[in-house]
Simulated scan of single mutants.
Amino acid sequence: MFFSEAGARPRTWEASPSEHKKWVKVFKACDEDNKGYLSREDFKVAVVMLFGYKPTKIEADSVMSSVNPNTSGLSLEEFLSIVRKKKEVQLHRNEIRHIFTAFDRHYRGYLTLEDFKKAFRQVAPKLPEQTILEVFREVDQDSDDLVSFKDFEYAMNYGRNEA
């Protein structure tokens, strides 16, 4: 796919020392009775504190099933690893949203072929129009001549986990 070949993979991201301290502080605040781990409910509260939403049952099940079976919950190291991954995904999605918004100059919530042509003319003026058309057709998953954010996000993430 064009976007993965063009290197649209996310950059490696590291938490700042202050952000890391915040995560540890949240872990400790949610670790009732100082057990040294987060229970399922503790984890949900921590996610609300850090990300502003309550995790779904599926997300909580997924996280808790990844916990070492010899422990009673999520250790600090496991929690920090999960938070780091969630933060990377959040930042990557925000970056994709920013790019989509830059293409969507009329704020319609979708992109047309003309939007693609204008954007590519600015960033790659010598790119053949046929290539722009091929990219547009590839990104337009449902072939309705409109690229939704969902289509665009899918294209930007295509091949992301292959390397």
Rank of each mutant, 00 (worst) to 15 (best):
A15T: 07
S18C: 03
S18A: 11
W23I: 02
W23C: 01
K25Q: 12
V26L: 01
V26Q: 00
F27E: 02
A29I: 09
C30R: 05
D31F: 04
D33K: 15
D33E: 15
D33P: 02
N34A: 13
K35F: 05
K35C: 10
Y37D: 09
K44V: 10
V45C: 08
V47Y: 02
M49P: 03
G52I: 09
G52V: 11
G52D: 10
Y53D: 04
K54F: 11
K54E: 15
P55W: 09
T56Q: 02
A60L: 08
D61Y: 07
M64L: 12
M64N: 04
P69D: 06
S72W: 01
S72Q: 12
G73P: 03
S75E: 07
S75H: 04
S75D: 00
S75R: 01
E77N: 05
E77H: 04
E78C: 00
F79G: 00
S81N: 07
V83Q: 03
K86L: 08
K86G: 02
K86Y: 00
K87C: 05
K87L: 03
Q90C: 08
L91S: 10
L91Q: 12
E95F: 14
E95Y: 14
R97G: 08
R97Q: 15
H98S: 14
H98L: 14
F100Q: 10
T101C: 10
T101N: 13
D104N: 10
D104M: 02
R105P: 00
R105C: 10
H106W: 06
Y107T: 13
R108N: 11
G109W: 08
G109C: 06
G109M: 01
L111Y: 05
L111S: 03
L111V: 01
D115M: 06
D115F: 06
K118H: 12
K118W: 11
A119N: 07
R121D: 15
V123P: 04
A124L: 13
A124P: 05
P125V: 10
K126A: 10
L127K: 08
T131C: 10
T131M: 14
I132Y: 08
L133K: 13
L133E: 14
V135S: 06
F136Q: 02
E138C: 09
V139C: 04
V139A: 07
D140H: 05
D140W: 04
D142P: 07
D142Q: 08
D145F: 08
V147H: 00
V147P: 06
K150C: 06
D151R: 09
